[in-house]
Design a protein around this nucleic acid. Sequence first.
RNA 1: GCGUCCGUAGCCCAAUGGGAGAGGCAACGGCCUAAGGAGCCGUACGGUGCGGGUUCGAAUCCCGCCGGACGUACCA
Length: 815
Amino acid sequence: MSEYDPQALQAKWQQRWEEQETYRASEDPADPRERRYMLDMFPYPSGDLHMGHGEVFALGDVVARYWMQKGYNVLHPIGWDSFGLPAENAAIKRNAHPAEWTYANIETQANSFRRYGISFDWSRRLHTSDPDYFRWNQWLFIRFFERGLAYRKGGLVNWCPNDQTVLANEQVVAGKCERCGADVIRRELTQWYFKITDYAQRLLDDMEQLTGWPERLLTMQRNWIGRSEGADVLFEIEGRDEPVHVYTTRPDTLYGATFFVVAADAALADEIVTDEQRPAFEAYRAEVAKLSDIERLATDKEKTGVFLGRYAINPVNGERIPVWAADYVLSDYGHGAIMAVPAHDQRDLDFARKFDLPVKVVVHTGLADPGETGEATPGEGTLVNSGPLDGLTKTEAITKIIEILETQGRGTGAVNFRLRDWLLSRQRYWGTPIPIIHCPDCGEVPVPDEQLPVTLPDLRGEALAPKGVSPLASATEWVNVECPKCAGPAQRDTDTMDTFVDSSWYFLRYCSPGYNDGPFDPEQVRKWGPIDQYVGGIEHAVLHLLYSRFFTKVLHDMGMVDFTEPFQRMLNQGQVINGGKAMSKSLGNGVDLGQQIDDFGVDAVRLTMVFAGPPEDDIDWADVSPAASQKFLARALRVMSEVTSEPGVAFDGGDTELRKVTHHTIDEATKLIESQRFNVAVARMMELTSATRKAIDSGPGPADPAVREAAETLAVLLSLVAPYTAEEGWERLGRTGSVAFAGWPVADPALLVQESVTCVVQVAGKVRDRLEVSPDISEDELRALALASEKIAPYVQGMPRKVIVRAPKLVNIVP
RNA sequence: GCGUCCGUAGCCCAAUGGGAGAGGCAACGGCCUAAGGAGCCGUACGGUGCGGGUUCGAAUCCCGCCGGACGUACCA
């Protein structure tokens, strides 16, 4: 290994790339190259880079470098998602300011990135915690506010008792805080929301454009948005003036509604409960409020509820049905109230059986009576006991009943979404202040644009300790301001924005990082956007990726961008694990990226990441071998170093066998990179290396032009994965300039044709003979040749029934 | 429970309706060597989770199981 000193190569080439700004994207309007935008999800600066970063950026760099080789003008920027809780927690612990920890970590990561050799355009670097950046968060917030897309409302919200802040729906995973894993509880609070639900249908429809996204990602978003079709039906409640809306996907079963359920925490329940039932109701409601989400949503949990003492009137048949309150009905979906059809809905049936409510079958499905079996029959069938719907199928009945309801003014067809509005306020310090001033006379007044940014008051240490309200509230000098409208005494909003706001548009800022007249220069965004390839973790499937799509659509509606989807292609890399488990301190199975680099070199680590398997698969570090990668790179560099011909020599006269290998490798590697099968592309590079080695040792020798061709090809292919080794090899081959821009080789079709191919002769699908034939042999010739084979004779008596010929590779004889 | 994806050599993984194996790890053998954990060359290993079906032909398509991963979870 003495010849291959990765640390020395790294030092040498890293310096040159920096001096020459090798990877800077060109802004020159005269630059004729087509533009491409390659983006990796920007990192959060929590300490140094880890193995996960190592993987994402190694993969993203393959794409960026491939495009550079192909001659595109590539934008490949880097920045930091530098607002967020960990900085705040660190600051409390160290009695410091969050910025200290944050910016120190950013420097550490930046240095690691440089060492890691990622082809970033460093001139566009941004940090979301810079006033120059978050100023535009505030500017955008105000624009959203003006359009009615940012609003404040009271209601039950998700509260993380550990982080002492509210959370958006998307940040509650299985009832737990997405960040810290604490059980989320529900609190009644007034908070800021983005009206993402206004865009639900478009978020769904525009997924058609996302042909370059993995299917599972689209599925996750589709499920999260959760569109359903049905009807809004009006139910009168005895003793209430206004009728109550319910949403149902099964209006056809309206005749089977035997009771009515209101969410226990809905205002309606509190309003209509009779005096007699009130004590029971309030006790029940208190009981429900105590449950954590985890308990409340447990699948095997028994149905609970309480009768409200009232009756609703079924609009189609005038039946009086009892109104109950229960926690299986959610207050924030639909209208927070349902008609219960126990025969055809399992949840309603469970409830009916628990509380002895009647079960009435209205769809004959051929299955046993749900009232007897306890199994609801939600499937297809024929309507019965349903007046005008009798005899119809489910689908027909749905259409018909909606028609009837609409004619009578008792309901309409309706669409509902599972998606909720995006709760964006956070009761924490290290984020973007919400640029609103609360005035007792004027209400919510946006901070005038010219006063932006609203910067954070200087708080540190204990002052940041979570106490259930934002730390900003204690900065009285900062809080108390004049109302921009009436100049009367007023107060700043003391919450900060969810950091997902920061990341919802950062990719646009990269197009014009210093721009001062808006969040981004629309002209530059038109030139670079949308992003051609985005790389990042699947964990953002319904977080960052959904929010960014929403932001892009709003910006499109504002006329600021001319596309409606920000990310054309999406690659979700897997995770790096160790020994079958996620790396963690408690398991003690962590692997340190820096240590791996020290031990094996950057290129070997990157190669290991890329070669380990398909990019979307997890990499178990216990299953792979960076040492082996290092050996391969040493071998490749040795091959490149042993070439003795001069640069520029014509390849034509070189050894044909090796040339064919080289051109096959080019052909295959190109297709493999295009289809993101990077691991297989690396395997091809290994083959080319072996073939070249053989040619030098026991073939035409190191002076043969074909050996140079193979070695130069290897350097270029390798530059996507192992840039240091590739640069060094390129230089040793006597070439000048960075190998990064050497140009992607093109396979010569003449060298791809083979003189002969092996044709397999099968009898009844079993291989019985192999023939060497010309690749352009005709079907007839091949058939004749195969039938004449002596090896097949024992298996074929007389005329075969059928002969399938797939020239030139295969003949199958069916005797 | 529902949805999506996945089961190929001891291990990581190729093969996208046509020969089961490209590449790598580990193993074994040879050459080189003072020796080697370096280098070079080579060898072996499975019939594709199980059972059906479609087809001239199935790892690949369809159905049902078994096992695993991820997502989601009272959304009316």
